[in-house]
């Protein structure tokens, strides 16, 4: 639901970077989105396609959207497991002492510019 808010922050940061690097345009954006970041891909892509038309440098920018799997680590049995499938409780030893290793972030990895 807050995809548009994230899109606005991503675009603002890239526009600033494009201006600073004196590029003509940004042709591609590689974004890594965690499975448990709360972002819904379809909504994000729609919001991005709408918002890029209003930018200075990103009107033709292609979005390379990479999903990063959510992985949780169990402190008690030291195993890792897929977060989306099993959630907070370790499927091996049923311990609640677990923490998320990957899958929470939304990262701007790189941009291709002309």
């Amino acid at each position: 639901m807050h995809e548009l808010g994230i899109v606005v922050h991503v675009i603002n940061q890239i526009e600033e970077l494009a201006k600073k690097n004196k590029v003509n345009k940004v042709v591609e954006l590689t974004l890594e989105v965690g499975e448990v970041s709360g972002v819904v891909k379809e909504y994000f892509v729609d919001a991005f396609e709408w918002a890029k038309k209003k930018t200075e440098y990103m009107k033709e920018c292609h979005l390379d959207y990479i999903t990063i799997q959510g992985i949780t680590y169990c402190e008690d049995c030291q195993k890792t497991y897929p977060t989306v499938q099993y959630g907070k409780e370790c499927p091996y030893c049923h311990s609640p002492h677990t923490y998320l290793v990957t899958g929470k972030d939304v990262m701007i990895k790189n941009i291709k510019v002309e």
């Binding site: 940061q13 939304v106 990262m107």
Partner: peptide, 11 residues
Amino acid sequence: IKTIVVNRSAY
């Protein structure tokens, strides 16, 4: 075309 490495959180 050149690539700029950003590695920065959306937030």
